[in-house]
Design a protein around this nucleic acid. Sequence first.
DNA 1: CGGTATCCGGTGGGATACTG
DNA 2: CAGTATCCCACCGGATACCG
Lengths: 124, 124
Amino acid sequence: MKPQQQSHALAYCGAARDILTIIGAKWSVLVVSLLEERAKRFSELKREIGDVTQKSLTTVLRELEKDGIIERVVTPIVPPRVDYSLTPLGRSLLVPIKSLRIWAMENHPAIVQSRSRYAEKEAA
Amino acid sequence: MKPQQQSHALAYCGAARDILTIIGAKWSVLVVSLLEERAKRFSELKREIGDVTQKSLTTVLRELEKDGIIERVVTPIVPPRVDYSLTPLGRSLLVPIKSLRIWAMENHPAIVQSRSRYAEKEAA
DNA sequence: CGGTATCCGGTGGGATACTG
DNA sequence: CAGTATCCCACCGGATACCG
């Protein structure tokens, strides 16, 4: 009930944290990015990511599915085939992700530098 | 060394994860947002956030400082006074954060809905 | 192929108490 | 006022093994 900035910042806090919980998951952003091109199978994603366990990948995919970010289509053949694709919601998520990615690419060096500067100060 | 999409997506993976580690911290985005207006003291931030412990807030502030997102200015008086402000790097971070915030506000309802739909399916 | 089940170690973050 | 210092626990994510 306080004026201006405070209530404003706290207002979107819940939603923002929710979103960060989603894209904060270790592989979620990468998965969504990899699905930008086209729908992909489980094994494709696993292969392209490389160092991710089946369990971790499955977990992320399930979460993204629950949140309506991706769609999971099972084709009941032998052997089973499962395709993952972005929903419209998922595709819209690419916008803020791209914004984040651009910032990351531009400023990552500065952050690394800042960290090492800090480490030096500590050593001294 | 693979072609096209894969190496591209994996290329910014490291940097992106680094950034997500930063803004994924529970209170970091809120802190940065609160500092947009002006520099603030420790107690101000704590009061405005409300449900955060001193330790948690201190931890986040230290991390953001290490990464060069915020600046910590100590005024050695009694009682001590410490002001936190955004660095240029921190201010630039407001851009992707805003992008994320906008997306969150617009799509949070859809996500909540998707989750409850999922919960229903599970119950059945 | 695309999972689930189980175990398990590291860590983020809260509660609480003390300090310069 | 603005912190440290502990303790502690939930949960995330990796390893491994098994299944339809």
